[in-house]
Write a protein that binds this DNA or RNA. Sequence first.
DNA 1: TCCAAACTTTGAATCGTTTCATTGTTACGA
DNA 2: TCGTAACAATGAAACGATTCAAAGTTTGGA
Lengths: 341, 341
Amino acid sequence: MNRSASIKDVANHASVAVGTVSNVLNYPDRVSQRTKERVLRAIDELGFVRNDAARQLRAGQSRTIGLIVLDVGNPFFTSVVRAAEDAAALQGSAVLLGDSGHNASRESNYIDLFQEQRVQGLLISPVGDITDRLDLLRERGVPTVLVDRLADESKYSSVSVDDDAGGYLAARHLLDTGRRRLAFVGGPTSIRQVADRLQGAQRAVKEEHDATLEVLDSDGQTVLAGRSVGNMLVERGDLPDGIFCANDLLALGVMQSLTMTHTLRIPEDIALIGYDDIDFAVSAVVPLSSIRQPTEALGRTAIELLAEEVESENPRHRAVVFTPELVVRQSTGPAKGSSAG
Amino acid sequence: MNRSASIKDVANHASVAVGTVSNVLNYPDRVSQRTKERVLRAIDELGFVRNDAARQLRAGQSRTIGLIVLDVGNPFFTSVVRAAEDAAALQGSAVLLGDSGHNASRESNYIDLFQEQRVQGLLISPVGDITDRLDLLRERGVPTVLVDRLADESKYSSVSVDDDAGGYLAARHLLDTGRRRLAFVGGPTSIRQVADRLQGAQRAVKEEHDATLEVLDSDGQTVLAGRSVGNMLVERGDLPDGIFCANDLLALGVMQSLTMTHTLRIPEDIALIGYDDIDFAVSAVVPLSSIRQPTEALGRTAIELLAEEVESENPRHRAVVFTPELVVRQSTGPAKGSSAG
DNA sequence: TCCAAACTTTGAATCGTTTCATTGTTACGA
DNA sequence: TCGTAACAATGAAACGATTCAAAGTTTGGA
C-alpha cells in the first residue's frame, strides 16, 4: 500500500473512464445505475479516498474557512468556535482553527498558512491592530470578518458584543434591586472591553439621582486579583451595597474574600454580579449573577457574513453588534432591608 | 484582482522560467544573486502566495498533522493541543485541529476530512472503541497515535498518563501527612480513569495497617456533584480526615460544602486533594492540592511518535506512559493534631 | 425501419507547483 | 585561444481531480 489509489486506478479497476468516476462522485444522476454500482464497488475495493489537493487545485478554491482566535481555552472562544464549525458544516465547509494565544507572530503564521491553503475566507479575532495586514488580504481577495471586534464598516464586516450595553444591564439590575452605593471592579481601563463595561455602568448610575459608582482598579482579571480587591474593601470598611465585576473570575475572587469574613452575606449585605457567565458562575458558593454573551450567535453570524462576502462580487460590509443578556442568580437576590414580598 | 498570481505570472513578470522561480523559493542557493533579487521583487509586486494545493499535489503529501480531541474546552486537551502545535511547528508541520465533542459522528467527519487532506498522520483521542476504523487508516498508510489512551503496542503508538500511579500519589500524600480515615469521591467507576485512580488509592491504603478508604459515589464530575457529596457527609457525621476526589471540580464542590458549615476547617479537620490541577485549584478559597498531568509532554511526545512512524517504513510502535505529579497546596497542610514542627 | 431526442460515456485539457534532464553561460588553467 | 568544469537557467512532464465538448448508445414515435 505504497501510494493511495487515484481516480485513475478506480477507473481502470471498474473499466470506465476517469470522467465517469468523477461523475459518480459529483453528479450521480448523470450515471446509469449499473455503472454506478460497478464504480462504487471499485472505490470500496481499492479504498479510494478523494485527494482534496487535486480537487482544490482544479477548483481554484478550497472548501475551508480559517478561524483564528486569541485563546481556545477561553470558554467564550470555545463556544464561538463550536458554533462557527456547526454553521460552516451546514454550508458544506470545514473550519481550520488556529489559536494565536495572544501572540502576534503565531497569528501571522496562521494567516500565512491559511492563505497558502487558499481558504474561502478568514474569521479573526486579532491580537492587536493588524489593519495593514488585513488590507493586504482584502486586496488579494481573501474576505475577512472580524470577530469580537467592531470594524470600520466601509472595509470589513464584523461581529461583536455591545459591552456598553452589558455594563448598563449589570448596573441597572443592581439599581433595580434597590442598591445605591455601587462599585465597579475591573482591570486597567486601557482594555477596551473593561472601559466599555464601565461606561455602560456609569450611564445606568446617572439615571438615578441618589446612586453612586466607585471604580476599583484590579491588578488583572483573575480570581486572585478579585480577592485582593475584596480584602481591601473589608479592611477599609465603608462597603458598597452592590458590586459589578468586569468578569466572573474577579467576581468569584471578591465573593471568596467577602464570604470568608463570615459576617458579610451575599446578597443580603452586598449584591454581586460578574460578566461572561462562565461555567463556574452557577456553581459558586453563592450562584453568581452574570452577563451572558451570545457566543453561538457570534459564531454563526460570522460564518454567514463571510458567506455573503464570498458570494457577492462587491459586498456591502456589515458590522453586527449583539446585545448581551442578564442572567439573574442568587448573588443579586433581595437586599437585607427590602421587603420579602 | 480576480485570481491570485501564479508562479507563471511571477516568471513572466521577472522574465525567467517557472523552474527558476521555484528554485528561488525552495533552493535559493541554486540561483544567482541577481536573478534572486529580480524574482523576489516580482513576487512582492504581484503579491504572490504559494498555492499549497498544487504543492501538495506534486509532493503527494501535505505538511499537516490531524489532531482530534474530545473537547477543546477542557484545559487538559487545550494544553495538549498547544504543546502539539509547538512541537509540530519545530519540524515544519502545521496541526489541523478537530474537536469531536465526545460525538462519534463529528469524529468520523474529521477523520474523513483529514484523510482527504492527506495529512501526514493522525493524533486522536477517540470517542469510543474505533479500532476498526483505525485499522483501516493503518492499511491506507495513515499513521496514527492514540492520545490519552493506552494502545495495543503491536498495532499503534500511544501516549497516556498512569492514573493508577496518580491515585496512589494522592492517597499516599494524605497518608504521609497523618490522615488515616480516607474517602474517595468519584463518578461512576465505569469510567476507566476513575476506576484506575481509585485502584491506585486502594493500593496506597493497603500499605498502612491502620488506614481505611471509603468509596463515595458521585453523580457526575461537577462542582455541584461534589457539593452534594459534601453535604451528605456533613449531615451524616462520622467524617473522614482525608478526602481524595477524582477531579478538581468535585474537590471544589466538596470544599464549598465543608467550609460553608463554618465549623469544619480545611486542612486542619479534613484534608482535601483533587486531580488535574486546573487553573481554579490555585485560586480556591483554600488553595487545592492536586495531581498534575504532564500535558505538555503528552502533546510533544505524541508528535514525536508520529514522526517516527512517518519516517520509518516499518516502525516499532511504542506506548509511552507518563507518571503524573503531586502538587501540594494548603488544602492538605498539617492536620489539627500534628505538631507544628 | 428510421430518425431525433434523450441519455451515457469518453478522454483531453486544465489547475499551479516541483522535479530534473538538458541547454546555456562563465571562469580559468593550459 | 581552446577545453572543461562549475555554475545558472530552462521548460516539459507529472501529480490527481474536474470539466465539457464530442462521441456513442438507447428509446420511442412516425
